[in-house]
Design a protein around this nucleic acid. Structure first.
Lengths: 143, 143
DNA sequence: CAGGATCCACCAGGATACTG
DNA sequence: CAGTATCCTGGTGGATCCTG
C-alpha cells in the first residue's frame, strides 16, 4: 500500500515537527505562561513576597489546585522561590527570583503591546465582523 | 444558611474576576498567541507573503482546520491580510499587516528571552527534580 | 487549491473532600 | 494554614469527509 506509506510518512513528519516544537524554548515558555494564572501570580509577586493564602485572596477566583500547581511549576523553573517556615500553622512565602522578575518584566512589555494596540485590534475585529455575512448571527427560529 | 451565602459570595467574586480576565487586553493577547500555531504562522509570514498551501507545507504538522482557524483569527484581529485571487484554482495569499509584524517582533523579544534563559531554567528544573523525592519516577512494573 | 462541517480524544482547569 | 488526592467537565486541537 503505497498510499498508506505516504500517510505514515506524513505522520512521521508531523511527529518530528511536534518534537521540534516540544524542544523549542520559545514554545515551552509559551506553554508555560499560557496558563490562566501564571501571569497573575507573577504580577502579584511583583509587589513583593506573599504567602500562599495572600496569593489565594489576591488572585481571587483560583482554586487551591491551580494555585499550587502554578506555583510548583514556576518554582521548578526557577522563576520563584518558596520558603517554608515550620511554625505551628505552617507558613510558606513565595517570592520572585531574578529570573522570575525578568519574566515579569517581559510580561510588562507584553502587556504594554496589548494595551497599546488594543483598540486597533478591536477596530479590525469590528471591521471584519461587519464584512462577514451573517455567520453565527442566526436570526432564524429554533433551529 | 449564612455559609451558603458565603459560598455564593465567593462564586460571585470569582465570576467577577473571570470577567475581569476576559476583558483584560493582555489576557486576550495571551490566549491568542498561546495557540500552538499562531507563533509559527507569524514567523513563517515574517519571510514574506505565502499562499495557504505554502503555509501548510512550511508548518508541516498542522491540520487544515487549525491552519484555517489560526489564519482567520489573526486576520480578524488585523494581524494579517488575506488576499483572494479568483483564478481557476482559487489562490489565496496571506501577509502580515504592520500590526502583525509588530506582534511578530514582540514574539522575537519573547523568543530571545526564552533562548537566553533556557539553560538557567533547565538547570533550575534539574535541581528541583534532584531535590524532589521520587515522585513520578515509579521504578516498579511495566509502566 | 482552499476551506467548510463534523465527530472525537485529550487534557487543562475546576469542585470537592481530606490531611498534617 | 498550606497543601494533597480524586473525580468531572468543557474547550482546544485533530482526523476525516466533503465542496466550490
Amino acid at each position: 500500500m503505497p498510499t498508506r506509506t505516504a500517510e505514515q510518512k506524513r505522520l512521521a513528519e508531523k511527529a518530528a515537527y511536534d518534537a521540534y516544537l516540544a524542544a523549542c524554548p520559545t514554545r515551552k515558555l509559551l506553554d508555560e505562561i499560557a496558563g490562566k494564572w501564571v501571569s497573575l501570580v507573577l504580577v502579584a509577586l511583583g509587589d513583593g513576597p506573599m504567602r500562599y493564602s495572600d496569593l489565594s485572596r489576591r488572585i481571587a477566583g483560583v482554586s487551591q489546585k491551580m494555585l499550587t500547581q502554578t506555583l510548583r511549576v514556576l518554582e521548578r523553573d526557577g522563576l520563584l522561590h518558596r520558603e517554608v517556615t515550620p511554625s505551628v500553622p505552617v507558613r510558606v512565602d513565595y517570592s520572585l527570583t531574578p529570573l522570575g522578575e525578568s519574566l515579569r518584566a517581559l510580561m510588562s512589555a507584553f502587556k504594554d503591546w496589548a494595551e497599546s494596540n488594543f483598540d486597533e485590534v478591536s477596530t479590525a475585529r469590528a471591521d471584519y465582523d461587519a464584512r462577514t455575512p451573517d455567520l453565527t448571527i442566526g436570526p432564524g427560529g429554533a433551529g
